[in-house]
């Protein structure tokens, strides 16, 4: 290599290639994403955070919760269940139709005691043939799409998270480490604000052998005045304050909890379907209302 221009050219070409692929292309592909419709309910998703929850996102970032908690759910596959609701008027034709697609379930029990799961297939495309065959002879079937994987078995979400889930987040913190559980859906899993406050103040008060650090600096310990504050934490055992004192969450603590309760990414989307859809979100404004 004689001339230095070769060095710079090499560096330029190498770096601009990865720059184009990992900066430019994602920006073109995803950078302008907008609200999408959920499937099949057609609700707008996601909804931007407002008020306390939006402020709480800043608290979450500033305290570096991301170094221990991820916010992304993985999925290894889907389980597609075909549930027969109605075998139609002529059950034998229905059975014959089912048998044609899936000979294994050619048993008379298949169409008794409905509704019941009659087949489990690998993907949605495979269920289509069955659905078509049964509806053609007047039967009624439904297909349940249930994502699977270790994150989902741990109860961290109903489906994998996708780019759409994050479009209103800034700073996006998907995280790379799980010293603690994934928090992508913590708002639907642990929706009680008092639990969250107690947990932040003294993790061991809600989970005996927790190793999460406690965030006592987000709370204020003060002498109980004429009347005890309604906001004071209800603590027992070791973590309870001395008699005559109470523990009151600061604004930061309330913002953070509002944010945690807003974390929920399980709306069924086209690119990540879940049926039947999860129950609607509980109100996350209980803390805000205080």
């Amino acid at each position: 290599m004689k001339s230095s221009s070769t060095i710079f050219l090499a560096a330029f070409i190498a770096l601009s290639a990865s720059w184009a692929a990992f900066v430019l292309v994602p920006q073109i592909q995803l950078g302008r994403a907008d609200q999408a419709k959920t499937v099949p309910a057609e609700d707008k998703y996601p909804v931007a955070r407002a008020g306390l929850a939006a402020q709480g996102a800043e608290v979450y970032r500033s305290l570096g919760c991301v170094y221990c908690h991820s916010q992304q759910v993985g999925q290894q596959g889907v389980k597609v269940e075909v549930v027969l609701f109605d075998a139609g008027t002529n059950t034998s034709t229905t059975l014959a139709a089912i048998a044609k697609v899936n000979p294994e379930i050619n048993k008379p029990e298949t169409i008794t005691g409905l509704p019941k799961e009659i087949a489990r297939v690998a993907d949605i495309a495979a269920s289509d043939a069955l659905v078509k065959a049964v509806t053609a002879v007047g039967g009624k079937v439904e297909v349940n799409v249930i994502p699977t994987g270790s994150d989902i078995s741990r109860g961290w979400g109903k489906r994998r998270t996708v780019a759409q889930d994050y479009i209103y987040d800034s700073v996006v913190q998907p995280g790379t480490r799980r010293a603690g559980p994934d928090l992508a859906n913590v708002g639907s899993r642990l929706a009680d604000p008092n639990w969250q406050l107690n947990h932040l103040y003294a993790p061991k008060s809600v989970l005996k052998d927790s190793v999460m650090p406690s965030y006592r600096f987000l709370f204020e310990k003060r002498k109980i005045g004429k009347v005890a504050s309604a906001e004071a934490l209800k603590l027992t055992g070791d973590s309870a304050p001395a008699a005559g004192f109470e523990i009151v969450p600061t604004d930061k603590a309330r913002q953070l909890v509002a944010y945690l309760l807003s974390l929920r990414s399980d709306a069924p989307l086209f690119e990540s379907p879940v049926t039947p859809p999860p129950a609607p979100a509980p109100s996350t404004n209980t803390v805000a209302a205080k």
Binding site: P26, R32, A33
Partner: peptide, 9 residues
């Protein structure tokens, strides 16, 4: 940038 493009960058 918006959404996961931030993570990508």
């Amino acid at each position: 940038v918006r959404g996961v493009v931030q993570s990508s960058v």
